[in-house]
């Protein structure tokens, strides 16, 4: 059997994000969690690969607190076969270096695979580091910013990587990891059957002992980076607002551009 593994992250829904006007910090309470939007395209692509290949197991994995279970079930409701939660107090405060180590250990425990898929980036951290990081731990190549898949068979792929001045067509030999963009597909809506499967699914929880992780590589101790300070930038306020579309009004904005040396 072939296998495709997708990495997903549960993130706060930024659309609901609010800033406390007094303390100027983010209010997280009551903010709903969603699957990181880019990861939805990763899930859909895994399902498409299974549709095409047949005889394929699709697996989603997430490292996070116990409530991240909900994200895995949502993926199963879309048609993913199996969800695995990587959760352990020892994993807490892992940065992208430690997170990619833990995810790679989970892939090793899972066994063989053909393709790994991650989102381009998570909307909370916005780092885009975890996907390529996992690939490096597993000693396989990665292709970032995949916008189109021309060919994909176990052991062989031809994909398009987006660049700012065009795109690269890349041929890949062997197993690899790709990070994907919205342009790739349209995530499907969960089916009734999928929702039933999600309800019933057994989600294994793997901790540090199950993964045989090296303490020196996980959590706070295993993370090279330290957050020294977090602050909210002053909220952007609306400035000048005028009404009308006659030449005089437009001259106003023209003057604004010139006065601020913007053009």
């Amino acid at each position: 059997m072939k296998r495709v593994v997708v990495f997903i992250k549960q993130v706060p829904d930024t659309a609901e994000l609010k800033i406390d006007p007094v303390t100027n910090t983010m209010i997280r309470e009551g903010v709903p969690s969603i699957i990181n939007p880019f990861d939805m395209y990763a899930i859909e692509e895994a399902l498409k690969i299974k549709d095409k290949w047949g005889d394929t197991e699709t697996v989603v994995m997430t490292m996070g607190p116990p409530q991240a279970d909900a994200a895995l079930r949502e993926a199963i409701s879309m048609g993913i076969d199996k969800g695995i939660l990587l959760s352990d107090k020892k994993f807490a405060a892992s940065d992208t270096w430690a997170t990619s180590y833990i995810l790679s250990k989970a892939v090793e425990k899972l066994g063989d695979f053909d393709v790994l898929i991650a989102g381009k980036q998570a909307t909370d951290g916005d780092t885009a580091q975890v996907g390529p990081g996992v690939a490096t731990w597993l000693k396989i190549p990665s292709v970032t910013y995949v916008r189109k898949i021309d060919e994909l068979e176990p052991g062989h792929a031809k994909v398009e990587r987006m660049r700012s001045e065009g795109f690269d067509i890349i041929e890949v030999k062997g197993k690899f990891l790709m990070t994907v963009l919205k342009e790739l597909n349209e995530p499907r809506i969960p089916s009734f059957r999928g929702k039933m499967a999600a309800k019933k699914a057994e989600i294994p929880v793997w901790g540090a002992d199950d993964l045989n992780t090296d303490e020196a590589n996980i959590g706070f101790t295993g993370s090279p980076t330290r957050v020294v300070k977090a602050f909210t930038p002053p909220p952007k306020k609306g400035g000048i607002k005028v009404e009308g579309d006659d030449l005089e009004t437009v001259k106003g904005v023209f003057k604004f551009i010139k006065e601020n040396h913007l053009a």
Partner: peptide, 17 residues
């Protein structure tokens, strides 16, 4: 953003994006 995350792993470096 494609290369640095991979270098950071092999070099055991802290990487800030």
């Amino acid at each position: 953003r494609s290369l640095m995350p991979k270098l950071a792993i092999t070099m055991k470096a802290g990487l800030t994006a």
